[in-house]
Design a protein around this nucleic acid. Structure first.
Lengths: 141, 141
DNA sequence: CTTGATGATTACGAAATTCGTAACGAAGCT
DNA sequence: AGCTTCGTTACGAATTTCGTAATCATCAAG
């Protein structure tokens, strides 16, 4: 069950992280193998959930932010997370260790949009605290 | 200059966020338009940086974490960010407002890997503090 | 009301990519 | 050697993307 990725997998993944639309043929050429092999590897990694999904990184608005949320002791954070993941403008919902329990990563049209989300979170009775950080700059690994 | 996204753009984007490999033809059918229109819209959104890039969400390791990093007052955080973005296992580097200045989102093979990154950060003389949160669960908006 | 202009949408053949599948090749084991 | 397994390669078929020209809608001006 221990799916060991080799160097080839890692190379393919790095290319896809940069541009997930790179054709298999082009990746193959770049890493020195055939289209079929790249296809097999990508399919296997997808199967193994090394690749969770193909997606787009967006900046629909001008303001990204992290909203750290503390919830009451006795609350099931999973349910809260699910509900928040349905909110528009929310990119990620993380359950985390540390002081707060849930972190939202959001992408809003403006600061007002961020504020609305914070308000929306605060209005949930399970939520006991929020702390917001604006994301001033983002770069990808 | 005011790039106003309409409802159609938003619908297309939502489909792509779920699965960026959905063919234009399929998206078109789903939102009730033609392949060409979807293509135009996606091209325009890419051009306008509403879509920053096509990418893959990965979980190469077992442990994801946020590492919050405080740097010395007089330091240029941009340079630090650039250097950290080059570290393997780092997905995002954010410059943020709030107590700490930089947040790393990382995806490591194990907790040891997370620890190594923290150590690596602490060894930079500009870094004055770190605080780590493990990401116990992630869901996408 | 007609005319023109602008911008988006549709249509459609050509090029490129993905896909299914069978053949091939390299270990590892009996 | 013979057999099995797993990954790689090969190649034609199906699908998707792409380039481009025609069509349509909106709006302002004459």
């Amino acid at each position: 069950m221990t799916t060991s990725m080799d160097e080839l997998d890692r190379e393919i993944l790095n290319i896809l992280r940069r541009d997930a639309r790179t054709p298999y043929t082009e990746i193959a050429e770049e890493v020195g193998t055939s289209e079929g092999t790249v296809r097999n590897r990508v399919e296997r990694m997808t199967e193994d959930d090394v690749i969770e999904r193909f997606t787009v990184a967006t900046r629909t608005g001008n303001v990204k932010a992290m909203i750290e949320i503390g919830v009451a002791m006795d609350v099931e954070t999973t349910q809260i997370s699910e509900r928040m993941a349905d909110w528009t403008e929310v990119d990620f919902v993380w359950q985390v260790s540390g002081e707060e329990d849930v972190v939202l990563v959001v992408d809003c049209a403006d600061t007002q949009g961020v504020n609305d989300l914070i308000t929306q979170a605060r209005e949930m009775e399970e939520v006991v605290s929020t702390k917001t950080r604006l994301i001033l700059d983002e770069r990808l690994g």
